[in-house]
């Protein structure tokens, strides 16, 4: 693959793998949520994310060539080939932690996707336009839930603060730009995520204040997911579940 195609491929994997891994995590709630409405909401969110994955990884496969498909990328890659941020591969924890993670991710997507609708790459612009409509109601819901639980009972408040303390160190990776991002900026394909931080902090700060939650002081950030250098131990476990069928019965179709 030519160098610029390789960069584009990496960018698309990052977008697709974030949606795929978070979509899978959220789908783990199906049938387990505290109330029926939340169960349906989580399943629908997971469905949207998996749908977006098909677009991102579908395009990534096209860039890769060799007749590869989105399914090949989702089901036949190993841990070290995934490019999702660490935040989305963490286990769900309790309901509050799942929704806190969803909010931290949705907030980022709600800022990134409108920019991508203006991408010089028309396929990326089209996917972003579609995904952005869905992210708009995802973030509305996750923000509402974070406020409802944060500014809720003593128990729900304590759990949401614990969730934020646990997840905040995984926020920084979203903005840790590298060569791939520089190449995307140069080609007019995507913005440098580092430039989105101020807007993100403002949005997240406003919602967390309303939720009576305090953002931890430290800006320490766990990294290694979006570069593929170091994933957490959790991703491998997730993949054994997600990829089981294609690994056990290669090429199986519906």
């Amino acid at each position: 693959m030519a160098a610029d195609r390789e960069m584009l491929f990496q960018f698309l994997l990052r977008m697709g793998d974030n949606s795929l891994i978070l979509g899978h995590r959220v789908s783990e709630w199906c049938g387990h949520a505290p109330v029926l409405e939340e169960d349906i909401a989580l399943a629908n969110t997971a469905l949207d994310l998996i749908g977006q994955t098909q677009f991102w990884l579908g395009y990534a496969a096209e860039v890769q060539g060799d007749n590869k498909t989105a399914d090949d990328l989702a089901f036949l890659r190993d841990v070290w080939d995934f490019r999702n941020i660490l935040l989305v591969e963490l286990p769900n924890g309790d309901f509050g932690q799942t929704l806190m993670r969803q909010f931290l991710f949705d907030a980022f997507q709600s800022i990134l996707l409108p920019r991508l609708t203006k991408s010089s790459d028309s396929q990326i612009a089209a996917i972003a336009e579609k995904a952005n409509k869905e992210v708009a109601y995802h973030v509305e819901r996750s923000a509402d839930t974070v406020v409802g639980l944060g500014d809720g009972t003593e128990e729900s408040h304590a759990r949401m603060q614990a969730a934020l303390d646990r997840l905040w160190p995984y926020v920084g990776e979203m903005f840790a730009s590298d060569d791939v991002d520089s190449a995307m900026v140069a080609a007019g394909i995507a913005p440098d995520p580092a430039t989105l931080r101020a807007e993100y902090d403002a949005l997240v700060g406003q919602v967390l204040t309303e939720a009576t939650l305090s953002i931890p002081d430290s800006d320490f950030a766990h990294k290694g997911g979006r570069t593929g250098k170091t994933h957490t131990e959790h991703l491998g476990h997730l993949l054994t579940q997600m990829q089981w069928l294609q690994r056990a019965y290669p090429g199986a179709t519906w």
């Binding site: 629908n44 469905l47 949207d48 994310l49 998996i50 749908g51 977006q52 677009f55 579609k130 869905e134």
Partner: peptide, 8 residues
Amino acid sequence: TPTYSGCP
């Protein structure tokens, strides 16, 4: 055109 990305 799909209604929702993940519409089954």
